[in-house]
Design a protein around this nucleic acid. Structure first.
Lengths: 212, 212, 212, 212
DNA sequence: AATGAATGAGTATTCATTCAT
DNA sequence: CATGAATGAATACTCATTCAT
């Protein structure tokens, strides 16, 4: 009876193993320079086996971000559910996103990749759809927080909530890329966490009602 | 003697022609997918001729950003030299950078590419050096503006000037990438210029002394 | 008792099912382009199961023609047994063969395949042997008819009976291939059956005693 | 001056070398089983070089038959131009075609390949067009001969000239394939030329006016 | 008897780069 | 200075075939 279940578990595990190896290789080299051979060697499976679990290199690549996107959404929900003040919630959301990206550095670049229209053509529809859903879910949650902040007179009300979300999102990604490039120190940033704290301070300061 | 000069001029022009063609091709396809064949065809020169002017595909790619970086620095200097109020100067600097990037979309992606340590290994030293010089020059100019703003009590003095510069730079790049991905509209941004104005407003608001 | 028989019957049926599916796929794509995956999917059996019944793709392919060759021989025997005049018997034999090939288009191409020495190396001996037996049986039957026709002064006696058989066989196959290529109409043949009747007329005319 | 010419000659020669090697390999193995690697090794050129002269494996394959088709048409024209009786002209045309095919065994199989609609999709248009032109030219010449034969009361007038051409063409190809399969001897044909003479006799006998 | 899972060995095609001229 | 011609090294993806169960 347990046999089918064990098989199922093993299959899922194998899938995760492949994703894990792919994550490493893609992180190190980027999409194009990475090769299926290298990934196969890293998982200690043959190339055809990989194709048993993923339809194409592009699908494998984007599946990584897909896995990640589950985690971000989860993490964000937690931050939003915490019982703290609004500003504290903002900080928590910011940190949740930022830490997730720092722990899963490929997430940012793959997401960027998925943004580009040329890439989208080559990715399986079901992956694209699921990824977009997560992204919009994420944007939606933050926008709710923005709306609440405006209602309570905390955030500036001269901009549409969605615009505020977008600005915050893009600014945060811009900040992250400095870290992900691996050359933060070169630009004088020794304590990246402190840098982020400061940046968040600038961001929240810019978003708050003047006078509040 | 005029002959030598003409030859020299022609040579430089040829170099610019190649860069121009490369810029188009790389812009459209990105680094890896673009081929030297395509670039050669576009300049109407043979492939070996291109190698007469540039040592490798990577060098050609980065040389484009190098050419751009001259222009940005120039543009920035102009903005900084203008005789207007400090906040106006900030806006002018922001817009100069932003507009340059929108007009030369490859600049952002190539700069990003040059940031990555793996890429740096494959680029000729002299290009790298020159590019880094320009970047630091650029950062330096902005930092001067920041320092002046702090001195005059305009900008917040709780952060080191360089940190402020970095935050502003990275946030701006993050905003730009939304445009460069070509999917801004999809995220509800119809008037990208308005979006940038709003974003600048948030940014400057965040950087100003509270109470000023 | 009954159980073993039923099992045996089921086994044979399964074999036939596989052959049937293979026939479809090979007919549509030819030998190399067809894949075992596609055949397996069509029979709704797993690939290893197919290998339980056939040793290799090549064996499966040739087994189809083998199955067909039973049918042709059967059909030919019937035609030969019919109680009609000699010329009518010739026509009947011709039509039997031609119709069989048109209904089982793979028969001609696979037979051709089996003829080629390189292919023969890769096919199991027992299949080869059986196929050759059938072919020679077939040739033998026709040769008997030829001999009878010569004896009765109908067919030309200036050629060995076997030569006449071979000429008739190869000419007929040549005619058939026009149909099997699917481009008969393109060559102005709208009514293929009429074309064959005419061709038979030419053939029999060429084989008859001058003056008869 | 002569330099450009010599280069041109060398280029053409290289093209011919490649075709020659391809001819060997394809003859031996057939289209699919043959590999570009093997062809490259045989010409002692690198694979990419082959792609400099031919766009794809399929194009290379069909170009062989294209080259051949020039020769057949040439040979046929000669036969038709010869100043002999009509029956002798028929024999000459038959032998010209048959000998060409025996000397260039790949011609028949590739032509067969080009006939199939699926293959046609993958071949470059210009090759297809040229090949079809040659084929129709060839059919046209023979049809003229048939018409002349009918007019002079030699050939049977109960069939359209084009039908007669098609029947003769297909029957001849059928006969040839026995030789090309390499197993003629096995079927008791020791002297293939004699066999062909006999076959031609049957064919012409079938096509002549009864009573003539 | 049947199969899910795995793989060795291909396979056509591409592309940055380099000589010989 | 410029290039036609050539190639080494990849590279994603495929498929007949085989185990372990």
């Amino acid at each position: 009876m347990g046999i089918a279940e064990r098989k199922e578990r093993e299959k899922l595990q194998r899938r995760r193993d492949i994703l894990e190896a792919a994550r490493n290789v893609f992180s190190e080299k980027g999409f194009q320079p990475a090769t299926m051979d290298e990934i196969a060697e890293k998982v200690e499976l043959s190339k055809p086996t990989i194709y048993l679990y993923f339809d194409s290199k592009e699908d494998l690549y984007t599946s990584i971000a897909l896995e990640d996107s589950y985690k971000v959404v989860e993490r964000l929900k937690e931050s939003l559910a915490s019982d703290v003040g609004l500003v504290e919630k903002w900080r928590s959301v910011f940190l949740a996103f930022v830490e997730h990206c720092m722990e899963n550095p490929e997430y940012v670049s793959i997401s960027q990749h998925i943004l580009a229209p040329e890439s989208r053509q080559r990715v399986s529809d079901h992956i694209l759809e699921e990824f977009d859903n997560h992204t919009h879910e994420l944007v939606g949650y933050v926008t709710q927080l923005v709306e609440e902040s405006i209602e309570k007179g905390l955030a500036r009300d001269d901009l549409p909530p969605r615009t505020i979300t977008l600005i915050a999102w893009r600014m945060t990604v811009g900040l992250l890329e400095l870290y992900l490039s691996g050359r933060a120190t070169e630009f004088g940033v020794d304590d990246y966490h402190e840098f982020l704290e400061n940046a968040f301070d600038v961001l929240i300061n810019g978003l708050l009602q003047r006078g509040s």
